[in-house]
Design a protein around this nucleic acid. Structure first.
Lengths: 249, 249
DNA sequence: CGTTAGGTTGAATCCTCTCAACAGCCGTGG
DNA sequence: CCACGGCTGTTGAGAGGATTCAACCTAACG
């Protein structure tokens, strides 16, 4: 880490400096001067209780948000008053990239549990980016990587069974937690079965049944929303199992 | 259109000026001066025959590409030597946003038919963007909108039937063609049934069968790769039909 | 203590997959 | 010129997986 932070910053700066996620939502390797030029545009972190709405679908876009703690979901109501869970955000994730183009948030962002997020005014961030290539690149890479991973993941899921979808989902969560320094084998997931189903395109019954199957196979241990991954290799195998159905030899 | 182009440009400039797609791959409403500062970084258009590879999966990212004519597909080989069709590009589309983050192209780009594309050096485009907010915004919006539409579309498809997936696919193509000034009711699609299946997560048999069903219902008329949409309202209804199965009354 | 939301389980239905056979079209090569 | 294999597309039969519907259970909460 290059930011020693031995100067005295105001409370916001010290909050950001002490936030171990700064390498995710801000570019790594910022010089203290660069860091100081970003801090002034940040507001105080926003605290959200479970089910609180961070943004309402359709509201004009002005801010990106960085997740500090907790987790949130994006819920999109499509034309038929039918709602879909279209994204999940974990600590370190940036929220709002998909709102830049349309000019308004394409879905509501709802806290899945007690959460805390930072608000980043996009205009000023963008303007700062013109003078700070590191920051610009960081944002570009972040949105591009998100897009790329999502595209591949969703296209893979389209032709897979419920087992493969769930295994893939769990493994990808596990990987996210690992990268953020949490345990990759044990985590709490604040999503209901219905949430997971909506996100993966399955019914909540199927989600429950499939989890029960996994448990029966000693692949994992679930109690309510507490997940213990027991056989990572086995789950990984399921997650990347090629097709929809095992072809008969 | 604000670019009158009454100055004499070199051949590249005039090619771009005469390209009716410039409002898609370049920002609309460029002043002649702005236009002139973008032209120098463009290369001569690249011509591709059917099945020609524009880029190979894994190659280092350096260029975005703009489709002038024809159509291309992105083919991604995942870990299991299993390949997926992860994107389709039509005239006016920009290719390569998903390569910025990873630093290399996440899939091969292959021409579906005789096509022509413009090569845009990303570094120089990005650098130009720092001094030209219009250009910067245009790129940001483009990538963001792509991401947003794709996210929503794929999540919707995950829980829908083959009929809904295909109807959705056809309507979205129709809309693309309409926006580009082509007929929205009649078009040729250079993709095979297998391509479509891979893109939508269906088998090629199911794609063919479903198209046959549509034809029997007078919704459309398909011969080989020639599509006539007959009942747009009916297709639209199918495309946005809520769920997987019609619930019993 | 009743209510509600979330979760589990069972039975029947139906959609899509797999497998297989065949028709059409194209380019190559005899 | 025609035969041939390969690729593409169509059609049919059977099987399997996920959905729908319904009942029941638990935990949380006023």
């Amino acid at each position: 880490m290059s930011n020693q932070g031995n100067k005295v910053h105001d409370s916001l700066a010290s909050q950001c400096l002490s936030c171990y996620l700064k390498a995710l939502c801000l570019p790594p390797d910022l010089t203290p001067e660069q860091f100081d030029s970003i801090i002034p545009i940040l507001d105080a972190p926003i605290r959200l209780d479970k089910r609180d709405h961070l943004v309402q679908q359709g509201v004009a876009f002005r801010y990106l948000f960085a997740v500090r703690t907790g987790s949130l979901k994006q819920v999109t109501a499509d034309t038929n008053s039918d709602t879909l869970l279209t994204a999940v955000y974990l600590p370190g994730d940036l929220i709002g990239f998909d709102a830049i183009g349309p000019g308004h948030y394409p879905g509501s962002i709802v806290a899945l549990e007690l959460s805390s997020v930072c608000r980043l005014p996009f205009e000023r961030l963008d303007e700062l980016g013109t003078r700070m290539p590191i920051l610009r690149r960081h944002l570009q890479r972040n949105i591009s990587r998100t897009m790329q991973e999502e595209r591949l993941r969703l296209h893979q899921l389209l032709s897979r069974t419920a087992e493969a979808r769930l295994a893939y989902f769990l493994m990808s969560l596990s990987e996210c937690f690992r990268r953020r320094g949490y345990s990759s084998r044990h985590f709490r997931l604040a999503m209901s079965r219905s949430d997971i189903g909506s996100y993966l395109g399955l019914t909540h019954e199927t989600v429950g049944r499939t989890l029960a199957t996994f448990q029966a196979q000693q692949l994992l241990d679930v109690k309510a929303r507490d997940y213990h991954l027991l056989d990572m290799a086995g789950l990984e195998r399921l997650a990347s199992s090629t097709g929809r159905r095992q072809k008969r030899a």
